[in-house]
Amino acid sequence: MNLFRLAGDVSHLLAIIILLLKIWRTRSCAGISGKSQILFALVFTTRYLDLLTTFISFYNTTMKVIYIGCSYATVWMIYAKFKATYDSNHDTFRMEFLVIPIAALSLLVNHDFAPLEILWTFSIYLESVAILPQLFMVSKTGEAETITSHYLFALGLYRALYLMNWIWRFFAEGFFDLIAIVAGLVQTILYCDFFYLYITKVLKGKKLSLPA
């Protein structure tokens, strides 16, 4: 474990907690894409099935359980607890357009044609694009609450830090996992436009709004 990896995990955890707290304290999930959150719950579920088969470390198990638990809690808040505040009219991205091609791709391009390995690959590919419904929603409404921007920034930063971790690991350990690296690169690139807006607007105290 190097510093980039640890910072990435902390950033990821922070993103998840920011979102949970935002919804819980405002009693509202306005501006949040329930579809992205369903996709993230699917990502964690398919990636962390090894919780049932392999013990890696206390840290590993704890983080996995927290990520899964929080992501289901978020989905529950959006679709049950605070359903009345869910902005479904603006959350119109079709999840099947992501899930079906990615399921096919993970069957074709993987490290090993074994059930757990294919599900892990599926989760890596799906994670790289799971934020699209949320970004689509922001572009559709033309704005995002500041707290939602913080969430998106922390979530984008996490994979960027993982990229640094992989560069580090390549030179320090000769380790690289092409599937994770390519997907991580795609994932980070999707956030670049948002990073630009976040730095030029939100950090200067302005609300994130897109030009009409």
Partner: peptide, 10 residues
């Protein structure tokens, strides 16, 4: 060698 796949990362 495929058994050595690193799944420590989250």
């Amino acid at each position: 060698e495929l058994d050595d796949l690193d799944k420590d990362e989250l």
